[in-house]
């Protein structure tokens, strides 16, 4: 099974924040990538940003020296995933959209090809209802930027099979990732902890207890958080964060997880974080 994984390409659905940085990671490791989105404009932006991200990865020494980068194919056609050795779903965090696209993807790819979802917190078991072969679906929670962050959270759904787990873990090893495998639950481990913390950080700012900068400086200086929760929020994308929080609230029944008013207001204004140049912080021009 998967004997040709070493030479084969992967397919990534969704060319947003995560699809791009996962693609840069794979290319930098010498893996060819077929990147699929529904928008031509998005794909064009993605090409340019991925080029910069690969330079960024090189700058930070994230890729093995001397490795020939993989080649990128960006396309609107989901059929292009048919030959991939591994397929990664990284589309918008919307449960019904994901269910529909998962069904399409699992119709396109042959048996034996592991399907990975990069969802922030929709249980793998829920998404498994939409695929033909639930045993071949697993969660891999890459973090942004995927080419720099060494560790990923791997989620084994109740139906995920041993073969698929083994294939996913060996693929991640090829990408140079350290892994921690957890069981399936809304938000898994990292989103269950991080997303509510960011939501609270935003509430603290809205209540006037402290400024954005002060919250981050305290979490950094006193508690060793690498950037502070609100800078992290800007890196994630505030729209994605709000979607993920809403899904977490629904699936845990904990209404404090509902995205707070300040977060929603920023999303309504289109201040989505680094990707639009402004979120909790102002970034001037967008890095791309």
């Amino acid at each position: 099974m998967l004997a040709n994984l070493q030479s084969a390409s992967i397919a990534v659905f969704g060319a947003g924040v995560m699809g791009r940085s996962i693609t840069a990671l794979a290319l930098g490791r010498g893996v060819d990538v077929v990147l699929i989105d529904v928008s031509d404009d998005v794909l064009q932006d993605a090409r340019a940003e991925i080029t910069q991200q690969m330079r960024h990865g090189q700058l930070m020494g994230a890729f093995p020296a001397g490795r020939t980068p993989g080649t990128l194919t960006a396309t609107l056609s989901g059929e292009a995933a048919a030959d991939a050795a591994v397929v990664i779903e990284a589309i918008t965090e919307d449960a019904s959209l994901k269910a529909r696209v998962m069904t399409e993807i699992s119709r396109t790819i042959p048996a034996g090809v592991p399907l990975i979802t990069n969802t922030s917190g929709i249980p793998v078991a829920e998404l498994a209802k939409s695929v033909r072969r639930p045993a071949e679906l697993a969660g891999v929670h890459f973090m942004n930027p995927a080419y720099l962050i060494e560790m990923v959270e791997v989620v084994r759904g109740p139906q995920t099979g041993d073969d698929a787990m083994a294939a996913v873990l060996s693929f991640l090893e090829r990408l140079g990732k350290k892994t921690v495998v957890v069981r399936d639950a809304p938000g898994f481990v990292t989103s269950r902890l991080l997303h509510p913390m960011i939501n609270e950080a935003a509430r603290i700012v809205a209540e006037g207890t402290a400024s954005v900068e002060s919250v981050d400086r305290l979490m950094h200086g006193c508690l060793g958080h690498p950037t502070g929760p609100l800078r992290t929020a800007d890196l994630i994308g505030l729209d994605n964060l709000a979607d993920a929080l809403r899904l977490l609230a629904e699936r845990t029944g904990n209404s404090t997880f509902e995205p707070c008013e300040l977060l929603m207001e920023k999303v309504r204004r289109g201040d989505l974080g680094r990707k639009t140049g402004r979120g909790f912080y102002d970034y001037g021009e967008v890095l791309s």
Binding site: Q52, H56, L59, M60, P145, T227, L287
Partner: peptide
Amino acid sequence: VSSLFAMELVV
């Protein structure tokens, strides 16, 4: 300098 700012320096 964070890793993201490092790339901004390049650009």
